[in-house]
Simulated scan of single mutants.
Amino acid sequence: MKKLMVMVILFIGLQQAQAQSDKASIRETLLNYIEGTANGEPDRVKDAFHEDLNLYHIKKGELVVWSGKGYTNNIKPGKKSNRIGKILSIDMENDAAMAKIEIKMPGIKRIYTDYLMLLKVKGKWKIIHKSFTYRTMK
Rank of each mutant, 00 (worst) to 15 (best):
1 M>V: 01
2 K>F: 04
3 K>Q: 02
4 L>H: 09
6 V>G: 10
8 V>Q: 00
9 I>T: 00
12 I>E: 08
13 G>K: 00
17 A>Q: 08
18 Q>I: 01
18 Q>G: 02
19 A>V: 02
19 A>K: 14
19 A>F: 15
19 A>L: 14
20 Q>R: 14
20 Q>G: 08
20 Q>S: 13
20 Q>D: 15
21 S>M: 10
22 D>R: 12
24 A>I: 05
24 A>C: 11
25 S>T: 01
26 I>D: 03
26 I>E: 04
27 R>F: 09
27 R>A: 06
30 L>A: 11
30 L>E: 09
30 L>H: 03
33 Y>A: 08
35 E>N: 15
35 E>C: 03
35 E>Y: 10
38 A>G: 06
41 E>N: 08
41 E>P: 10
42 P>T: 00
42 P>F: 04
45 V>L: 05
46 K>W: 11
47 D>I: 02
47 D>N: 13
48 A>Q: 05
48 A>R: 02
52 D>W: 09
52 D>E: 13
52 D>R: 12
53 L>S: 10
55 L>T: 01
55 L>A: 12
59 K>R: 12
61 G>K: 14
61 G>C: 10
63 L>F: 05
63 L>W: 06
64 V>H: 07
64 V>L: 04
68 G>S: 09
69 K>V: 01
70 G>V: 09
73 N>K: 15
73 N>V: 13
75 I>R: 03
75 I>G: 06
76 K>L: 14
77 P>H: 05
77 P>G: 11
78 G>K: 05
79 K>E: 07
80 K>E: 12
81 S>Y: 06
81 S>R: 15
83 R>D: 00
84 I>D: 09
84 I>T: 00
85 G>Q: 07
86 K>G: 08
87 I>K: 10
88 L>A: 11
93 E>D: 05
94 N>G: 12
95 D>Y: 02
96 A>P: 00
100 K>D: 10
104 K>Q: 07
105 M>A: 07
108 I>K: 13
109 K>M: 10
111 I>H: 05
111 I>Y: 06
112 Y>G: 09
115 Y>G: 13
115 Y>W: 14
117 M>T: 03
117 M>A: 08
117 M>R: 05
121 V>Y: 08
121 V>E: 08
122 K>G: 06
124 K>R: 12
124 K>C: 05
125 W>D: 02
125 W>L: 05
125 W>F: 10
127 I>V: 06
128 I>G: 11
129 H>C: 03
129 H>Q: 05
129 H>A: 10
131 S>C: 15
135 R>P: 01
135 R>V: 01
135 R>D: 07
135 R>S: 04
137 M>N: 09
